[in-house]
């Protein structure tokens, strides 16, 4: 008996935000990220027979997505892409002046380690968000991640402002407790 079952009917609802956050931190383009997620779901659908149930659906989808991201970079790193990158800076000798300063590492810039920690932190936040009831998670994401104002959310979800703040309070309390347990 496999540990995990597969049910594609719930994939978009359950995993699209998690996959999107994973992708956007790696490709930095909303459109591309959405395309890659769509491709991942479709590839998952086609290869459902290969799902052994040893890992969770989410882990399995992430492994497909990782390959999609690599394919995306391979594609843009074709010869045409390389030529465009080379043209960018090395040949602009006429600009002169500040080139040395511009090439010195910026100590305040994000290091690879910072990015890795932040990406793991993002995963931990999403793990905690997954444990919230659906409505709480939706309201929290709209308010906190998408930055919608209170009125817009209330109109969209047909709730009152005081209702919204109660939901936000419950979501924040649950998230803070979960993060305390798993991250801080």
């Amino acid at each position: 008996m496999p540990k995990h079952q597969i049910d594609p009917n719930n994939w978009v609802k359950l995993y699209s935000d998690y996959l999107f956050n994973y992708t956007i931190t790696r490709v930095n383009d909303r459109e591309v990220a959405q395309d890659l997620i769509s491709e991942t779901f479709l590839a998952g659908l086609k290869s459902m027979a290969n799902f052994k149930g040893e890992a969770s659906e989410r882990t399995w989808l992430i492994s497909i997505l990782k390959r999609k991201i690599i394919d995306y970079y391979r594609k843009i790193n074709s010869n045409k892409g390389k030529a465009e990158v080379r043209m960018g800076y090395i040949n602009s000798e006429e600009d002169g002046g500040d080139w040395l300063e511009e090439r010195v590492a910026d100590p305040f810039d994000k290091t690879a380690e910072d990015s890795m920690v932040n990406s793991e932190l993002g995963d931990a936040i999403y793990d905690c968000l997954d444990k919230l009831p659906e409505k709480q998670a939706d309201v929290f994401k709209m308010k906190t991640i998408l930055g919608y104002d209170t009125e817009t959310i209330c109109n969209e979800l047909d709730i009152t402002a005081s209702n919204l703040w109660v939901i936000i309070h419950r979501a924040r309390t649950a998230l803070a407790d979960c993060m305390e347990e798993n991250w801080f």
Partner: peptide
């Protein structure tokens, strides 16, 4: 703020959902 987490907008999710 540090993690700078992102999520899909409702219309973006709908588009993916319809395709799927």
């Amino acid at each position: 703020e540090k993690a700078d987490v992102k999520c899909l907008k409702a219309e973006e999710r709908k588009k993916i959902e319809n395709q799927f």
